[in-house]
Amino acid sequence: MCYDNYMKIKIHYFASLRENIGRSEDVIESQTESLTVKQAWQQATGLPELQDDLLIAVNQEYTSEDVLLSDGDELAFFPPVTGG
């Protein structure tokens, strides 16, 4: 068995999304050749689409759903921010 493509991704959910999903984090493992943010979302939540207004961060920086993930990345999904 080949483990070359093994990826482990930690996912955080915040605020209303955390409440809707019912947990604050997931860890997913994948053996696929490539994994996008959207595929990670689908694997973790079982939901087909990301809501339009959800924001995405990889390693604490804003990104989009088509971006490819690397092993060990920290992924986060959250609603529009309301600080200040």
Binding site: A15, A76, F78, V81, T82, G83, G84
Partner: peptide, 11 residues
Amino acid sequence: ELKHRAPFWKK
């Protein structure tokens, strides 16, 4: 910028 980019949420 803080209002639009810093990840805080108010309940």
